[in-house]
Design a protein around this nucleic acid. Structure first.
Lengths: 350, 350
DNA sequence: GTACGGAACAAAAACGTTTTTGTGTAGCTG
DNA sequence: CAGCTACACAAAAACGTTTTTGTTCCGTAC
């Protein structure tokens, strides 16, 4: 049991005990001013012995640096609105980001959606922010922009083409990979199921799908389901797709939708992958759990978190802004897209 | 685009614009002093119009309240040492805790393991802490105790029987539930596989197992595998159990161990649940994914998080400390423990 | 012998709040 | 009309740092 009042050890206490002024203490510990090495060392020893740690508030007040960054936490309700890949991805990202920040000796604060309700106490004092999946006219980025707080986003901001501090997967390339794979596995027509959130993920994947169809001479079949509707929304769209005519493959952006759609079709006697291929743009427990397991695009979360934190640190240090970071998604080939006989509903190239 | 320098709007600016002193501003906004309702309202309006938010640093410095709590984040390396249920549970807890704190308008900061390396800047200024699964002589709780920072723990601290601010599942009751279930499903002998971390979870489950065996007249068969060894450790212990003689059931505390043990036995021709029942004390993706799916105890994470945050707030407000919170775990009955013919290796009661 | 300069440290200002203590005016009492 | 209270607000101290500006001492150059 060391000191009794270690809790309140202030810079004055250290100064008194070392027989110097508080200036000397501050300078000694921070390696700044002009202090003889002997004094510096002595002060360091005293401070260490007393377990002195500079008060973060006072330091932050003076130098307006908190050494902590924020991660905008979108609650479950708003995740329905914003978070395309669902809570799983978000929480994994939070964990990876925390692991990444600790390496740099930064704190990571989870703050609720900044756009509604009273601002959480610390939110405006953080050094920077990571924003998850900004949507069109996102009030959160508007607020940060307005306050001049540095931030990076996961996925690009669809409304700000000139904003460059983002990290994302190459959605266009990923989409083409998936579609090529489905076509190679025998799908002559491919239905696309996107979400309704107005974020880059939805926009870019759909655009890539349309472009790919054009090239392949295939008629686009596009469906939209609100992200928040999850598996049930997937079931509903599965039925709708069936009513419109069985395609060779169904590509659902979210894992929940894919799982629901697959389930709805299976319940109506359709076999996967025998009669239709199913694939999702974001792996989740639902896609893994489904029988047969659903092929998916997989996100390298640690890499994404590392890139985000790195970029944010760069921005905070005022480094010049290079190009956005594009990561490659892995395609996880599972049973739901095993190749088989041709499944052309509308003949390819017809 | 509102104001140009909203970023730096200070209490002085508000005071000047409202034609009052900063005292009046502070009092008006915080509903303290003795201010006429007219003035109070006018100041409020001006502040709102300017988008004024009190600087958290200054406020914190003055009143030594940060309105933020910390969650000790144990990195992947130390999770091997500390986190009994693996990273999944921890991240879910973090998410649930974040959702819970935002309701109270508190910030939640993830801080790295406090016991090693330099302390992250903010760690000693937070109002309180949630510590995940403290182990015997945990340096993190020692540090918090030493600094006089309020904290609650998830799972009790095995080394401090008189510390009461914890929330946990009733491990003894859960263990009995599982063992009763296994016995009822026909297991005449049950092998127990625990971890090596010195935390309450391991201690209490093992003690309950031993007690239950004594009552049931069954010879205890206890194995230990380091948590960090994961699935591979489970495979290894599965082989070891088999070499010692096939029991009627295997109860592994962690999902990874259970999955590995099941796998090792299945590879050697043992059928589950035909020849042996397998069950785990903490549900995870591994237990869900395994074929057959492995029965498990399931944690109600949101309830746990809510209880932890609630308790921490109580402690911070200096409320009297009631009894620790004991939550009930749900038992998820899956295929791996389907009842069948008696599987008595050693006859029950013999 | 005075002026200059650098080394080593100290004093004081500043950061933006909250809180304690003042201050002036009005109304009321005796 | 002196004195007291209540009211509405202002001034100033305090929180614990960092940083800017001083101060002292001493050696050296002119």
């Amino acid at each position: 049991m060391p000191r009794e009042l270690q809790h309140g050890a202030t810079i004055w206490d250290v100064a008194r005990k070392a027989g110097v002024s508080i200036t000397t203490v501050s300078h000694s510990l921070n390696g700044k001013g002009n202090i003889s090495e002997a004094t510096r060392e002595r002060v360091r020893a005293v401070a260490a012995e007393m377990g002195y740690v500079a008060d973060a508030m006072a330091r932050g007040l003076r130098s307006s640096k908190t050494d902590a960054i924020g991660l905008v936490f979108r609650g479950l309700d708003s995740l329905g609105n914003y978070g395309p890949n669902g809570v799983d991805v978000f929480m994994k990202l939070a964990g990876a980001a925390a692991a990444e920040t600790l390496n740099r000796n930064l704190g990571l604060m989870l703050v609720p959606d900044l756009s509604r309700g009273p601002l959480p106490p610390f939110s405006m004092s953080l050094d920077g922010y990571i924003v998850f999946a900004p949507h069109l006219d996102d009030p959160v980025v508007a607020l940060l922009e307005n306050r001049g707080i540095p931030y990076v986003t996961w996925d690009r901001d669809p409304g700000r083409p000139d904003f460059r501090n983002w990290v994302a997967h190459d959605d266009a390339a990923s989409t083409r990979t998936v579609l090529d794979h489905l076509a190679a596995a025998g799908a002559g027509s491919i239905a696309y199921v996107g979400g309704t959130d107005r974020n880059a993920w939805n926009f870019d994947c759909e655009a890539a799908y349309v472009a790919w169809c054009l090239e392949a001479g295939m008629e686009p079949r596009i469906y939209h389901v609100p992200e928040r509707d999850g598996v049930e929304g997937g079931q509903e769209v599965g039925a709708r797709i069936l009513a419109d005519g069985l395609p060779g493959a169904v590509f659902c952006l979210t894992g929940r939708h894919a799982s629901g759609a697959a389930q709805a079709m299976q319940e109506r006697g359709i076999r996967i992958p025998g009669d239709v291929l199913v694939c999702t743009g974001s792996d989740s427990e639902h896609s893994r759990q489904h029988r047969p397991a659903i092929s998916a695009l997989d996100v390298d979360i640690p890499a994404a978190a590392a890139a985000l934190v790195q970029r944010l640190c760069d921005v905070m240090e005022g480094k010049s802004e290079p190009d956005p970071v594009l990561l490659a998604a892995r395609f996880l080939h599972r049973k739901s897209t095993s190749p088989g006989k041709a499944r052309n509903q509308q003949k390819r190239g017809s």
